[in-house]
Nucleic acid binder design. Structure first.
Lengths: 163, 163
DNA sequence: ATTACTGCAAAGCATTTGCAAATGC
DNA sequence: GCATTTGCAAATGCTTTGCAGTAAT
């Protein structure tokens, strides 16, 4: 980088998170043979400047003007990298399609989705549902429904990786 | 309805579900002062003809031609009604925005989202995570991450409803 | 007769992508 | 210098919507 962007006044805790996270992100990028760029640091800083939750688009909007300008495309691309690196987590993802299932004559259950083949595997666990309801009650939250999704690799795809 | 669409050969179990669900849907529609239409029965039938999971768009594609033609718009509209009526459940929803959160220096936790004000409430429960991991192991599923979201009404909005 | 629903096609809109210019290595 | 990234703007693609015609009550 010829010149890193201006270090501006940041709240102490944000500064701290960035100082801790940025070197780790650098490591991640190097391992990936990706480049350490100004734009990526700006996005990372902005992410840690936000409160807990934010949407990609808002972040992009915030960086669309001003001294630390980063384009929309780059924000989205960097966010994906940061997710891969484990700095952010998607809470609600916009899968291309909305997925439905019947609930009629179909006992309540949850899902595991294979990252590789995309298969949906159903499972159910009554204790899980009870714990969730209990947690909702603790927060005086009136539960309408809940959703549990586990992401990972299904048995079949694990086998294929080994071969 | 002047004429209900042709009753075609359906697998026995599908026939059964439709026969059970359709009258219930009629009740729902009447309560809502909505109309009992041919298109709505076709969509309902198609939903029960599908295996457990399906996406809105696929369903729309299947009904875009052939004797039981229903337009895309109507499929989406009917699916929304069926969800409201409790016949289908959205597994992966396409919220307008993708929501992110930091995971850095932020202990693992889950979310409740208020249907009314959209607020995110965090909660954590270690037992929950353990149960999920256990379920994954039981299915030989290699867990990468999981997500729990509880939908309902937050404490604040409940108060506003009462007033 | 009224009023809701459907079909169609056009609009919306967050996200992705292609490509030339800029930047990191 | 070469390869990756960036910015821009245009494309993508699922979903929604407006409207005129059609069907349900």
């Amino acid at each position: 980088m010829s010149k890193m962007h201006e270090e501006q006044e940041l709240p102490e805790e944000v500064r701290q998170s960035v100082d801790e996270a940025w070197p780790l992100f650098i490591d991640f990028l190097k391992k990936k043979q990706a480049r350490v760029t100004q734009a990526r640091k700006i996005v990372l800083t902005q992410v840690f400047s936000r409160h807990d939750h934010f949407c990609a688009d808002d972040l992009a909007a915030e960086l669309s003007s001003g001294p630390n300008h980063v384009s929309r495309g780059t924000v989205y691309r960097t966010l994906a990298l940061m997710e891969e690196a484990g700095f952010v987590r998607v809470i609600r993802d916009t899968d291309v399609h909305a997925h439905y299932e019947h609930t009629f004559n179909h006992p309540n259950h949850e899902h595991m989705i294979c990252d590789q083949c995309g298969e949906f595997i159903e499972f159910s666990d009554e204790t899980l549902a009870k714990l969730i309801s209990a947690a909702a009650r603790r927060h005086n939250f009136e539960e309408r429904t809940h959703r549990i999704v586990v992401f990972g690799i299904c048995e079949k795809c694990q086998g294929e990786q080994d071969s």
